[in-house]
Amino acid sequence: EVTIKANLIFANGSTQTAEFKGTFEKATSEAYAYADTLKKDNGEYTVDVADKGYTLNIKFAG
């Protein structure tokens, strides 16, 4: 089991951190699915992958 950390960075400057656990593939998939649910209210997003994929910096356009 691994932990994927998602740093969520919103257009208004606020930030939030979420963690997803499971296999690497499952946790990564859940992180992207979570970002997709936030897209409606926060706009499109870009992802900067860090720490060999264990950290995702997800920035929303607003």
Rank of each mutant, 00 (worst) to 15 (best):
D36I: 04
K40V: 09
K5G: 05
K39F: 13
Y45S: 01
G13F: 14
A61N: 12
I58Q: 00
Y45N: 01
I9F: 11
G43N: 04
E44I: 11
A35T: 09
D51L: 06
T55M: 14
A33T: 09
A18Y: 07
G43H: 03
K52E: 12
E30D: 14
L56N: 01
L38P: 00
A50W: 11
K5S: 15
D36H: 05
D36N: 12
G43R: 02
N12I: 15
A18S: 11
K39M: 14
T55K: 10
Q16Y: 10
D41A: 14
T37D: 15
F60Y: 09
N7T: 12
T46S: 04
V47G: 02
N7E: 13
N7W: 05
F10C: 03
Y34N: 03
K39E: 12
G62C: 03
D51G: 04
T37L: 04
A31E: 00
V49I: 06
S14L: 12
A50I: 12
K26C: 04
V47N: 02
T37G: 10
D48S: 15
D51K: 04
F20Q: 00
S29Q: 14
G43K: 03
D48T: 10
S14N: 13
E19D: 06
T23R: 13
K59E: 04
D36Y: 05
A11Q: 13
K26V: 08
F10W: 06
K5I: 10
A33V: 15
A61K: 13
N57F: 05
E30Q: 10
F20Y: 06
A6E: 02
T55F: 08
S14G: 15
T23Q: 13
Y34L: 14
T28W: 12
I4C: 02
K21W: 07
D41M: 10
F20R: 01
G53H: 04
Y54T: 10
F10D: 02
G53S: 05
V49C: 04
T23A: 09
N42S: 12
Q16M: 10
A27T: 03
N42F: 06
F24C: 03
K52M: 15
Y32W: 11
T15F: 14
A33F: 15
K39P: 01
L8F: 06
G13N: 15
K21T: 12
D51H: 05
F24T: 08
A50P: 05
N12W: 07
A61E: 15
E19I: 08
S29E: 12
G62M: 08
V49M: 08
A27E: 01
E25A: 08
T28I: 15
G43S: 04
G13R: 02
E19H: 13
T55A: 05
A6S: 07
L38Y: 14
I4D: 00
S14R: 14
Y54R: 07
K26W: 07
Y45C: 02
F10Q: 04
A27Q: 02
F10H: 03
E30K: 10
V47A: 10
G62T: 15
A18K: 15
A33Q: 07
Y32N: 04
F20T: 01
K21L: 14
T3L: 09
A27I: 03
L8R: 00
F10K: 04
N12C: 03
V47P: 02
F24Q: 08
A11K: 07
N42T: 05
T37Q: 12
G62E: 06
N42M: 11
S14K: 08
E1C: 03
L38Q: 05
F60K: 00
I9Y: 09
S29T: 12
E44R: 06
A50G: 10
D48C: 06
K52V: 09
T28C: 04
Y45R: 01
E1D: 12
G13A: 04
G53D: 03
T28E: 08
A61Q: 15
E19F: 14
D51C: 03
G62L: 14
V2M: 07
K59M: 09
K59P: 01
I4E: 00
F10A: 02
E25L: 05
Y32A: 03
K40R: 06
G13M: 12
E25N: 05
I58L: 12
D51V: 02
F60P: 00
K39G: 09
T37C: 03
E25S: 08
T15H: 11
S14W: 13
A50Q: 05
D36W: 04
V47I: 05
Q16C: 04
V49Y: 12
T23K: 15
G13C: 04
G43A: 03
L56P: 00
L8C: 03
A50D: 10
L38E: 03
Y54M: 14
T23V: 15
I9R: 10
G62H: 07
N7A: 06
Q16T: 13
T37P: 02
L56F: 04
A18T: 05
K52W: 07
L56C: 02
S14T: 05
I9H: 12
K39Q: 11
I4P: 00
I9N: 15
Q16K: 15
K5H: 11
I9K: 11
I4S: 00
A31L: 08
L8V: 13
T55R: 07
S29V: 07
L38H: 07
F24S: 06
A11E: 14
K26D: 11
A31C: 03
G22T: 02
S14E: 12
V47T: 11
V49N: 10
F20K: 01
D41T: 12
S14A: 14
K21Q: 13
L8Q: 01
K5C: 03
D36E: 10
A61V: 14
D51Y: 05
D48A: 14
L38V: 13
E44G: 09
T23L: 12
F24G: 04
N7V: 12
F10Y: 14
T28G: 02
T17D: 09
D48N: 13
E1Y: 06
F20G: 00
A31N: 01
T46I: 12
F60C: 00
V47E: 01
F10N: 03
T23W: 06
Y54G: 14
A33I: 14
S29K: 13
D51S: 07
K59Q: 12
E25W: 06
D41H: 11
A61M: 09
K26N: 08
E44M: 06
T37R: 05
Y34H: 11
G43P: 01
A33P: 00
A50H: 13
T46P: 00
L38R: 07
A35L: 11
F60A: 00
E1N: 13
G13P: 01
G22Q: 03
E30L: 07
T55V: 10
E44P: 12
Y32H: 13
G22Y: 02
E1H: 08
F10L: 05
V49T: 10
A6Y: 02
I58R: 00
T3P: 05
L8H: 02
K40L: 09
A31Q: 01
A50L: 14
A31T: 07
K52N: 09
S14Q: 11
D51N: 09
E30M: 05
K39T: 14
Y32G: 02
T37S: 14
S29A: 14
G13S: 12
Q16R: 06
Q16L: 08
V47C: 03
V47K: 02
N12Q: 08
I4L: 06
E19N: 15
A50V: 14
L56R: 01
E25Y: 06
A18Q: 13
Y34G: 01
A33G: 07
E25G: 10
E25C: 04
A11F: 08
T15W: 14
E25K: 10
K39R: 13
F60S: 00
D48Y: 11
T3W: 08
V47L: 07
G13H: 12
D51E: 06
G22H: 02
Q16G: 13
G13E: 08
T55W: 06
Y45V: 02
V49G: 06
K5L: 05
E44V: 12
A35P: 01
K59I: 13
T46R: 06
I9E: 05
D41R: 14
N42K: 09
I58N: 00
V2A: 08
D36G: 06
A11D: 14
D51M: 09
A35M: 13
D48F: 12
V2H: 05
D41E: 15
N42G: 09
N42Q: 15
A61Y: 07
K21V: 10
T17G: 13
D41W: 05
E1V: 15
G62V: 11
T46G: 12
N57K: 07
E19P: 05
S29R: 08
N7H: 13
V2Y: 09
T15K: 14
T15P: 05
K39Y: 08
Y32E: 03
V2P: 07
V49R: 07
Y54H: 09
K39W: 07
F20N: 00
I4N: 00
T17W: 13
D41Q: 15
E25M: 13
T23Y: 14
N7G: 03
G53T: 03
V2W: 07
Y45E: 00
L8Y: 11
V49A: 11
A6H: 00
I58W: 01
